[in-house]
Design a protein around this nucleic acid. Structure first.
Lengths: 337, 337
DNA sequence: ACCATATTTGAAACCAATGTCAATTTTCGC
DNA sequence: GCGAAAATTGACATTGGTTTCAAATATGGT
């Protein structure tokens, strides 16, 4: 609270009767220093409780030791897991993440990104968002950059991806194998990258078996929130659409769907089978526990972090397609009748 | 990726044929500058795509424009909401939050805190954690600091709090008014600040009516995870303990409890009433929707942010006791015989 | 016009560190 | 014990900005 004068390397030098250069040398252990002076410096450091000023260090070294993370939402468990992965992927490296938030608004994302650049971050990780591809490409020429949950043509090497089509195909296929034919797909906003790919996987699986049903009729749109899932199913039920299973594009919408079914006296899975997507923390504890697709959020963050570090060190990176996995729990069962 | 030479204020000065001082002046608008030179500077800035180096700026100004946030967990929705609040409370101020993670480990928390200090953050917000009070007090003498979800004697002015006792009393009281007398309290780790207070509120309410029942027998311990809630109830059920209601200290444990009850064929609320704590995003979408206590996570973050800004500006702060609210949904009902 | 005052401008110091370079000291071979 | 090579050390420039101070220029009153 008080404005105590910060102690600098000068103070240490004076106290230890050496030059600032020498202090720097013992602190960074760059060049051997006579042990008596070394001890004097260390003693002075301890006594004055000296703490190097990273800002000055960063200025002279030309690095900030910060990795900027342009994200969209800190409160969602989905992004939270990615953040966790990033954080862990960075521990021990000396780099700190700095999270800036875009809220899915291009304008906000642009200023957030600009903030990172001004702070001279040493690398940038972009998570989703709506910022124009062009801008990303520009930035990528200036600074190491990787992104996840997003795909930019021309920067394929720097996009960390999941095989959404296959993941979605697998989930749909699971329902088909249980005998379901009228499977509702609750999609998300088409502007978000993953949506179209997951829709594609759904169509693929459906078209393999449902030659006489038009799957287009079974697709309804939500905006990723629980409420939108609930509303979508309500609407379906009200117009007496027939279906025996639901595949929601994320867990939240599946939760909403679950509540809508409950409100209408429909049981999961006896009456309707339900599959989610993401495998959020909570899915194992819904009633009944939800069958879903495990999306490797933590791993994505972790790998993004490790990759950016490699890029900074000038190493080449080779981003794998991260695997998803269908987790069968208790919200799906064989179609009855 | 490439190491393009960054352009500095010198480059602008040269291009605009003025001195660096003048460039600084037009950029910061501190002193009027003749309009022709001004235009020349602005033109050069635009043409060279100049971006001020915040590190240099911070060094000379002696501020980092960063608020350090020592938190414990980025992935939990509970902390996520607080982070969101902090982020929003800081927007427009020019300050950025920097989150560092302690994982509830004192050693990690200490280094995380040290990192913040070395980075010369202008203020610190501490969220929970196990760092010794003494250390917090030391830091508080050096730098503006506020904390939430934590209480340090001697720094009461800087602790943003919720009336846990009352919140917990209210929740218990709600069950009592519904006729319940054997109410299980699922507590969290006693090392975490809130735990004891909430336990106190529970006892208070219980002792008002249950003069013949020893509420101590009804308290079981969890560690805040869903699994621990599940296990606790399993155990209870296995030893045939009688109860008609459960009050869990956080929503996660309530979710776990819910599943345990479901596994044993017990219905909520017909057989057992259940109350959670926090009002996480998800609680409105459990089956049935969960009665819980709304904990103002976002507001806490927001207010913490605003307060730290005030402290930095040398203003006094007066932290209110934030209100909680019982949200009655569908997991509680009148005790049936 | 002329001088006093006000405004604009640039040179130079400064922020807190690092690292180059040259001077000084130490080590070591003979 | 002496000279050359090696090791240690300090002075100083540097990083990219801001700000003080004084010089240069512009303004205004008479």
């Amino acid at each position: 609270m008080e404005k105590k004068e910060a102690i600098t390397i000068q103070d240490i030098a004076r106290k230890a009767k050496v030059s600032p250069s020498t202090v720097s040398r013992v602190l960074n252990d760059t060049v051997p220093v006579a042990s008596d002076k070394r001890d004097a410096v260390l003693a002075a450091v301890k006594e004055l409780n000296y703490r190097p000023n990273l800002i000055a260090q960063n200025l002279v070294r030309g690095k900030s030791m910060v990795i900027g993370v342009l994200t969209q939402d800190t409160a969602s468990p989905f992004y939270g897991q990615i953040h966790q992965g990033i954080e862990q992927g960075l521990t021990g490296s000396g780099y700190q993440p700095m999270f800036v938030i875009g809220n899915w608004q291009v304008s906000e994302e642009l200023v957030a990104l600009e903030t990172l650049m001004m702070r001279q971050v040493d690398g940038i990780i972009i998570l989703g968002g709506n910022i124009p591809d062009e801008r990303i490409k520009e930035v990528a020429t200036e600074i190491p950059l990787v992104m996840t949950a997003r795909w930019v043509k021309g920067l394929e090497q720097q996009c960390l991806q999941v095989d959404n089509v296959k993941a979605s195909y697998d989930a749909t296929r699971h329902l088909i194998e249980l005998g379901h034919r009228h499977i509702i797909f609750v999609m998300g906003l088409p502007s978000i990258g993953d949506t179209l790919e997951r829709q594609k996987g759904y169509y693929q699986a459906m078209q393999e078996v449902n030659l006489d049903i038009d799957p287009q009729l079974l697709v309804i749109e939500g905006n990723f929130t629980q409420l939108s899932g609930l509303l979508a199913i309500e609407q379906l039920l009200n117009r007496k659409q027939f279906f025996s299973a639901i595949f929601a594009m994320n867990d939240e919408m599946a939760f909403g769907a679950m509540l809508a079914l409950y409100r209408h006296g429909l049981r999961v899975p006896e009456d309707i089978s339900l599959v989610g997507f993401d495998d959020q923390d909570h899915t194992a504890y819904t009633i009944p526990p939800l069958t879903t697709v495990r999306y490797p959020m933590f791993d994505m963050g972790f790998m993004a972090a490790q990759s950016i570090l490699k890029l900074i060190q000038g190493q080449a990176i080779n981003l794998p397609l991260l695997p998803t996995q269908l987790i069968v729990r208790e919200s799906t069962m064989r179609y009855q009748q």
